[in-house]
């Protein structure tokens, strides 16, 4: 019984971070109609940059999150026009070209990271590392709780921005019908840039959080690309509600499979599940995708 509760709590805590990765990713698909293959590499870069700043300035990684967000926001904002060029130049198969382009970007990022930082593992140390809270016999690592809380705060701010601000309204309008939104005076080029920038910023922040829980290495990216794809497909491409449900589901699946079946089966079950969801419910479990 205790093991069961422990498993559920671990799953939920990790699921919070998957939501942060997927919320930006799914918005990016909803507005730009682009599947960014480099999502995991943004996670990796976010973790590494946090590590570098944190070790040289001795500032806690949690406090660095706003800075990381701003840095990667700028990076995404500067990169997006290039991506946009790929999309508009290849109208007929924009999706494939964008996929291939971001694949190139991901290879570039990974190669650069390997060349600069090598293969070594690194650990992000935060104020919460190594502590834990005991509650009715259930052991909750403070670090995981902390990252969960941060992930949820980031996601709530993001949702508030999307639902309550005028700019968020424009983003949602552009996601629904870009051409009509354009006729209503919404500058879709600007929206696209900002959406992509928000996505890279959010993903890098979740990278910092992931880096605090697990160790960091230059090859970690692929794992989170897989997770992001899983969450976004299971939730329905472009649906943020779906991404939240699927993020929690992924966290729970992850911890249940590793506790009750065995760690080596995690990815097998995830991929089979993903494949079956696509065949049976291609619009996601909630049926809200594109």
């Amino acid at each position: 019984m205790e093991l069961l509760i422990q498993t559920i709590i671990n799953g939920l805590l990790i699921g919070g971070i998957y939501i942060t990765i997927s919320a930006g990713f799914t918005l990016c698909f909803g507005v730009l109609h682009v599947i960014d293959f480099a999502v995991g590499e943004w996670v990796m870069l976010g973790a590494f940059i946090t590590f570098i700043i944190s070790t040289s300035t001795h500032i806690d990684p949690f406090l660095l999150l706003p800075l990381i967000f701003v840095m990667f926001f700028i990076a995404g904002y500067l990169l997006q026009p290039t991506l946009q060029r790929v999309i508009t130049k290849n109208k007929s198969n924009a999706l494939l070209m964008a996929l291939a382009f971001t694949f190139g970007i991901s290879v570039l990022f990974k190669g650069a990271a390997l060349t600069i930082w090598g293969f070594n593992e690194r650990n992000l140390v935060t104020i919460l590392s190594g502590k834990s809270i005991s509650l009715l016999g259930i052991n909750i690592p403070s670090l995981r709780l902390g990252t969960f809380v941060f992930a949820i705060i980031i996601t709530i701010v993001f949702l508030w921005f999307l639902q309550k601000t005028r700019f968020g309204l424009a983003v949602r309008a552009a996601a629904e019908r870009q051409d009509v939104a354009g006729l209503m005076g919404i500058d879709s080029n600007m929206i696209n840039k900002v959406v992509y920038a928000i996505y890279t910023g959010l993903t890098a922040c979740s990278g910092a959080l992931i880096g605090a829980i697990f160790s960091i290495n230059t090859e970690m990216g692929v794992r989170y690309t897989i997770f992001a794809f899983f969450v976004v497909v299971a939730g329905g491409l472009g649906s943020i509600e779906g991404a939240i449900v699927a993020g929690i589901l992924l966290g729970l699946l992850n911890s249940f499979i590793s506790v009750y079946i065995g760690g080596q089966y995690v990815f097998l079950v995830l991929f089979l599940f993903l494949y079956l969801i696509l065949l049976a419910k291609p619009k996601g479990l909630l049926g809200k995708g594109w």
Partner: peptide, 21 residues
């Protein structure tokens, strides 16, 4: 066997798609 190959490969892919779709 260098990881720098990945940098060149990634750049090549991105450039081809950008300028020679």
């Amino acid at each position: 066997d260098t990881s720098f190959y990945l940098v060149l490969l990634g750049l090549a892919i991105a450039i081809v798609i950008l300028f020679l779709p």
